[in-house]
């Protein structure tokens, strides 16, 4: 019980199209059960504290990502999930997301893997809760 009162409850919004999304959704289920740490998935960016960026991002997706980031309530954090965002895109080696957006978005946590396991995603969120 102590946990619920001390740690902050977090809402997550997921963007992008990619295979990491399957593993992120798997954390909702009863086996991993991310909600025991006070973490929720929301479908409106206005409700969210954390923005999760994953997968392949098109030029329209980039524009939409920035509008979503601006509509998040402060304070806000960003987690970059998967090889395509952390390093270079799998389908196009020259596209490097982090280099392109390093002045616009400040990424708090990098989660490598292709795709990362659900345990890794939960571990990343717990680390972030310690930071908060």
């Amino acid at each position: 019980m102590e946990y619920f009162f001390t740690k902050k409850k977090l809402n997550i919004f997921v963007t992008g199209i990619g295979c990491c999304k399957q593993e992120i959704i798997a954390t909702v289920g009863p086996i991993y059960d991310i909600s025991r740490f006070g973490v929720n998935f929301v479908s409106l960016p206005e409700d969210a504290d954390i923005l999760v960026i994953q997968g392949f991002i098109s030029s329209l997706g980039e524009k939409r990502l920035i509008t979503i980031f601006n509509s998040l309530k402060t304070p806000k954090w960003i987690i970059a999930v998967g090889k395509c965002v952390v390093d270079s895109s799998l389908l196009n080696k020259n596209y490097k997301f982090t280099d392109k957006f390093k002045n616009i978005l400040k990424i708090d946590y990098y989660l490598p893997g292709c795709p990362p396991r659900p345990e890794a995603f939960i571990f990343c969120l717990l680390k972030l809760q310690e930071l908060i």
Binding site: F56, S58, L60, L91, N92
Partner: peptide, 11 residues
Amino acid sequence: LTIAEINSNDI
């Protein structure tokens, strides 16, 4: 489908 037009030259 413009949001899914992802640049994929390498593959």
